[in-house]
Design a protein around this nucleic acid. Sequence first.
DNA 1: AATAATTTCATGAATATTGTCGAATTTGCC
DNA 2: GGCAAATTCGACAATATTCATGAAATTATT
Lengths: 330, 330
Amino acid sequence: MNIVEFAKILNLSIGTVSRALNDRAEVSPKTRQMVLEKAEELGFVRNTNARRLVIGRNYMIRIECPTSTHILSDRYLVELARGVEEVAGAHGYDLLLHLGTHRSDAVDVQEVDGLVIVAGSETTADDIRRLTQKGRTPAVVIAWATPLDFPAASYVCLDTLPGVREALECLASLGHRRIGYIGSGQPGQRLRDAFPRLMAEAGLTWDPALAREAGTTPDDGCRAALELLALSEPPTALFARTDVLASGAVQAVSQLGKTVPGDVSVIGHDNIEAAALVNPPLTTVAINIPDVAVLAVKALLAMITEKADPITLTVGTHLIVRRSCGPASS
Amino acid sequence: MNIVEFAKILNLSIGTVSRALNDRAEVSPKTRQMVLEKAEELGFVRNTNARRLVIGRNYMIRIECPTSTHILSDRYLVELARGVEEVAGAHGYDLLLHLGTHRSDAVDVQEVDGLVIVAGSETTADDIRRLTQKGRTPAVVIAWATPLDFPAASYVCLDTLPGVREALECLASLGHRRIGYIGSGQPGQRLRDAFPRLMAEAGLTWDPALAREAGTTPDDGCRAALELLALSEPPTALFARTDVLASGAVQAVSQLGKTVPGDVSVIGHDNIEAAALVNPPLTTVAINIPDVAVLAVKALLAMITEKADPITLTVGTHLIVRRSCGPASS
DNA sequence: AATAATTTCATGAATATTGTCGAATTTGCC
DNA sequence: GGCAAATTCGACAATATTCATGAAATTATT
């Protein structure tokens, strides 16, 4: 049934019905009420495509997420999508999903009003340029640390330093003085570089001898931890760049017949699902994804509806305290 | 730019341009070629809404997923979405995401050609009826074990028994005879009921004294395992209904000063991310989500494009062997 | 072999799809 | 009758597609 038939049944003109359905003022309250009731009763729904064609808007935003090398793990991706959908949905927008590489061409823009782009570690400014049709489609990019070099988009940057700062302050307050750093190689570069400064800010001194670059597996973390704990002046606490490495570090401690947090404290990063399940549950650095989603969508909607200028925001991480940290052993 | 302007630039009629773009036979190859090239060059894209309005199809399927009580964890949800997008995308369909409860009303059908509905444990046949507009919209439901009572939809059922059967056979072949069962309460009912039969099929005898219903946390699993291991004739292997419970069971074993898999073997269920990170990495029962996605979308596309009748398929779980199982200790 | 007749083919014009919105018109009320 | 509120009318959005047209190509006829 289309609006013509529907209007005929109601003995009203198409225009009146349309206005009633659009909640416009020029229609009498009783008429509106009647139209709404009848629509419900007869199951009449306007044709979305015709509607969008006429009003020239799609009420649709697409969320773009690369397959490989996520900033956000799958778990966070769902959380992000949920948040995005919630606030976008409240404004009448649908969410279109596009997983898979940013490089794929066949992305019919024209059918969305805006883009939420989750940048992977390999995403470049050129990718954003192409995805946004040279900036013609409003877009907000979820990026690590700093915006990409494409100023027509808005950015929500994920800054991991605040949470790490908290972590170090937490360790410092527990009396730890020698803190080991287990890195994950390439992607963690920025944190690695900032680590000495963060240590200083927490009133600690940075000893380069206590840093190891590990890989990505628990075993990598375990090996690095064993090395550090075998030093003549071993650290009393370990900070690992990822929870996976941290879980390996925990294993290393128990291999040495010691306990976490009794003998050694461990802090991870990312708050993966497993972090709460490891024994002991891991104190870790996390980011509030719903916050990110809300900020991103708000920025995007402002660009779409008010032609607002692109903005750059930063969301910091924070510490989640579980049971893997305790007072420094003397 | 719309097709009118575009046709004017090309000195062709709208009809010819449209035909060329739609790859229809009635247009000469040179003309088509020219149109395609020029479209690329001038960046002309047809208006999706007008297009869909005219052809009466949306080329869009929506994936429906309830917030609470997933059949599939978030991780699997992304995997499912990826699979769905891949095969649906290959047929020109976009993927619309709808997370949140199935109960929410404001779901403008009319704008999608089909639905992939992930049933939660609370989803009812009535929910499906409403979502599909009494069956008017083609739909495929991802459900546990058996179809819901709404035959207008297709079903891909997730059957956990095959993987559990494999698990028990694996334990039997390692010499285990007494196997403990740690359940998760309500949702695991079906497996619970089938467990004695599966035991028998693996050549084992079922002892009701070795069953405990735990909750959902690692601690629940730990407690249940401690109880079982304190029996006068304790089990030599533990099957836990979820990996979370299994991780608790592993903790229980080490609390008793014993090791997994040296003294006690443990098998989990679900293959959550953490399963591979626990120490030792957990042997567990998993389902192949990409398979599920592919089957679901194929069934759905058949319903959409060929008006195929709804079908019911079943995908079974399988065992993933890691390092938490070993020969029975004597 | 040449001309007429017929078929094939590409193209153009017109119409259909469904809803929105500004302008014009009707209705109601004083 | 005049004014305001409510309603109707008609143009418009962008594309697919049917039907008609003209040209070219093929066949038939003598």
